[in-house]
Amino acid sequence: MTFLKTDRVGGVVIVLLLITTGVFGTLLLLDLLAIGPGYPPPEALQKWYIPQPRYEYAENGSMIVNRTINGDIVLLGDIEEGCPSLFPVFSRHCNYAMYADTGSDDRYLVVNWYFDDNADLLQAEMDLCSRLRAAGNVSFSELILSKEPDPSQSGSIFDPVAITRFESETSSGYFTVVEKPLSPEHDDYFIAYFGVVGSAPLSDHTAALEDLMLRSYSFNGARPLAFC
């Protein structure tokens, strides 16, 4: 009788073991075969907020680069690695690009600083702010990036973006900070600058700068520079 009882318990244990192994194996398989997240590497993120050209193939198979960003605004040259001489190197992941308005010949500059650590971001913001204050006028502002209405989208079509407005003799424009815009689970921090090159009233170039920002990545949750 005792033998039979032990045998039955053993059987139950084996079945439970098989079920556990099966469940564990299935979970393992599900996790191993899942695709993604395919997260962009730092080399891609260092130009994340810089409007990029479009590429297509011509009939003869050669590659065409379409540098028109929007309307008359075109990318001049390529997206450059490193920071422009106007601004210091706060992050080793820094890229910038120059744009021109082919109608007015005005020049625009977009800079993207990428950080994978919040402490580095805060330090950079502190340094940047003190330098900006020394070089020109700094103030808080908000931009309304308007989009064409999309009937399939519900909710607001206007996205207010909190920015730091900077005006100086060499360049004037908008700084904004975006934290974890790709995923709340991934430490990505950006400082983006959209500005006009030279001494020019910023209000005359708001439309062009907004165009560039609309051709960029999401500014959802963007904030102005801290310490400014």
Binding site: L30, L33, A34, G36, P37, Y39, S152, S183
Partner: peptide, 21 residues
């Protein structure tokens, strides 16, 4: 953006961004 969001919901993409192919 809304198209990607709709697809992600339909695919059951995790918050990390993984999808069962």
């Amino acid at each position: 953006a809304p198209l990607i969001q709709e697809l992600a919901i339909a695919m059951g993409t995790t918050t990390e961004g993984s999808t069962w192919p």
